[in-house]
Simulated assay, not measured.
Amino acid sequence: MSEERNPNRTQDSPSWGKLILRFFISAIVIGVAAFITPGFRIDGLWGVFLAALAISVINYLIERVFNFDASPFGRGIAGFVVAAIVIYVSQFFIAAMSVTLLGAIIGAIVIGIIDMVIPGKTI
């Protein structure tokens, strides 16, 4: 669709393909973080996908409601704290996920480090 046909679409809006790719990258990052972080456990592949979905939805709601980037290093220490809280709260929506408070903090650090290495926004 060209800009002439759909004037409401902005240049910055991602396509469905980019959103799906970003979701899968987020799932991989969250799965790796859960694997190497003590106190952060996700059971099974579907659990990883559901955790990525829950974290993405909570992150999206925070960005829309508070106009705040909730990525681990998005807004300095405040972004890091919000990212840890998002990881911790997600366990209450996903049965296959369990996170301790320390695991959420370490997980936010791990996700932030991986996010700095992988180009594009992962969470």
Rank of each mutant, 00 (worst) to 15 (best):
Y88E: 01
F92K: 09
P38D: 05
G112R: 01
A70I: 04
S71T: 08
F68M: 07
N67C: 06
D12M: 11
I106D: 01
M116A: 11
L53H: 06
F92T: 12
A34K: 02
I94Q: 02
V89P: 00
V29W: 00
I28C: 11
P14V: 07
G103T: 03
I87Y: 13
V32N: 07
A54R: 01
F66I: 12
G112N: 03
L101E: 08
F73E: 06
G79A: 08
G39V: 03
M116K: 11
A78P: 04
I62Q: 00
G74K: 07
M97W: 01
Y60I: 07
T37R: 02
I20S: 12
I20W: 08
I111A: 05
Y60D: 09
S56L: 09
N59M: 12
F68R: 08
S15G: 15
G31R: 07
L53A: 15
P72R: 03
D69A: 07
M97N: 07
Q91R: 09
A84V: 03
K18V: 09
R64W: 06
G76C: 05
V48K: 00
I113K: 02
V57W: 10
R22C: 07
V117A: 14
V48M: 10
I55F: 02
V81K: 10
G17Q: 13
R41D: 12
G79Q: 09
I36C: 07
V99H: 14
R41H: 13
S13M: 14
A33T: 15
A27Y: 03
V48W: 01
Y88H: 10
L102H: 07
G44K: 06
F49N: 06
V117I: 15
I28F: 15
V82M: 13
G39Y: 07
G76Y: 02
G112Q: 04
I87F: 15
